[in-house]
Each structure stands twice: as C-alpha cells, then as structure tokens.
Amino acid sequence: MDIIVCLKQVPDTEAEIRPTPDNTEINYEGIKFVINVYDEYAVEEALRIREKVGEGTVTIVTLGPERAVESIRTALAMGADKAVHLDDAAFLGGDANATARALAKAIEAMSYDIIFCGKQAIDDDLAQVGNILGEFLNLPSVTGIVKFDLSEDKKKATVQRQIEGGIEVLEVPLPAVFTATKGLNEPRYPSLPGIMKAKKKELKPVKLGDLGLNEGEVGKKGSLTQVLKYSLPPVRGAGKIVQGDTPEEKAANLAKLLREEAKVI
C-alpha cells in the first residue's frame, strides 16, 4: 500500500491575521506556522492504514516555501516514510487549480494506492484541492470522510462521509483521493525517537523544471482566481450586559430585548 498525503503548512489557528498596508497581501511576519489541522487527520489515517496492512509507504507531498520543511519534518516524525517538497518560487501564491496542477504532476510520477488530503486548508479555506487533484489524476474523490476501512483484498475502501443531517456510506475503488475531516481519528504526537529518525528520512525538493511545467501553469500566474484586496471584518459594536437582580429577572429582560429590540424571536 503506497499512500500519499498532501500536506500544507498554514498559520496556527490562534494567529492574528492582518493584510499588509496596501491590502494586497497577508502580513506573515511573526506568525507561527503548523500543519493544517485537517492534514494531520490525513497523516494519521495514512499511518494507521500502513500499520494495519504491515507494508507500504506513506509519502508527504507539500507545496510551499522553505519554512514548510518544518511541518514536513513533523509529519516524518509522526511516522511518514519520506517527503516531496515542491519548493520553487514559481509554485507559490496559486489558487486551488494551480496548486492541484503542480501536486498532480508531482504525484503522477509516484506510486500510489490512496491519496489523502485535508478537507480544507485553514488559510485559504477553499476546500477544493482534493477534488481538483482527483479530477486531474482521473481518480474518484470523496470529501470530508470520518471513517475509512480498507477491504480484505485492498482494492477498495468503505468510507463514511459527513453530510448535513446524516452520514453517507460509500464504496470506493482504489486508487482514489479522500479528504479528511475531524472525527476520522485522533492524530498522534511525534515521539522523541520519531523526531530523531525524521532527520534522516528522504525529503526531496522538486523544482518547476523537474515537473515539466512552465511558469504560466502554476502559482500565481497559473491561477484562475485572484485576490484583488484584503480587508479586516467589520468590528461588532460593544454589546449590552443584561441587568437584573436575579437570574430569573435577567432571563426576563433578555427575552424582552430579543423580542422588542433585536426582533429575532
């Protein structure tokens, strides 16, 4: 079983995000970066499958700047076997289409039975790359899975997918692309021996030329959407603290405010 995990490095969820003064970029100064939360579920699931099957490899594929190496190493320390880093300025700043194109080209040349992505990258919040990757590689794709079971013959997977109001159970022939969401598993922490071992694992940098793509097909130039301007969300006005001498009185006053002032009940 050869499993590929597409992993993106993103700002920590606690990070304060601000545009640059001209509002055309995000100011990443001083921000802590981590593995995208959903990609952690993806790594964990890949490791569990490999452990259960008892053979095969888990390969991390990351497109990102130099700093992304740190997150790749973390995934290797969790137990992934090797990594490919799409590390070229030309790849950066792309939308889902441009990113998926580069990832697809890199993955095409590799051996895979299963490809995992996260449901969504918590920076751009696009929730697109998994399905576009599936399209480019001509593989079935299933988004937002919360359970994954490999069949006896390892030729298909039975997965559960969270939808509004329920859970969908699907049978998917492999190879296929799956995007992971919360509920799939509880990701492990890298162990100390894992961290030591990770330093010696293969981490292969890949440049634009290695993929046989040209500049106009990837990154910002290869994108079909473009951010014109960033802005901060409107600040919510200071709220009211509902007064009253007893909890019951506060409740009564709140009910009245919701009815008469806010007009929402």
Binding site: K240, I241, V242, A251, L254
Partner: peptide
Amino acid sequence: IFKKADYGVVDDLFKVVPSLAEECKKLK
C-alpha cells in the same frame, strides 16, 4: 465571548436558561 456578544448575561446558565425558555414561551 462577551466581546462578541450583542447581549450578555453574566450568571449561572442552569438558572438562566430554563427561565429564558419560560419567558420566551410567554412572549410568544
């Protein structure tokens, strides 16, 4: 949460919530 709230009630929810349900029922 109070920094985002339009209306804040500082109290024990186990006392406020049941009364709120009662009051809303009355108003409705």
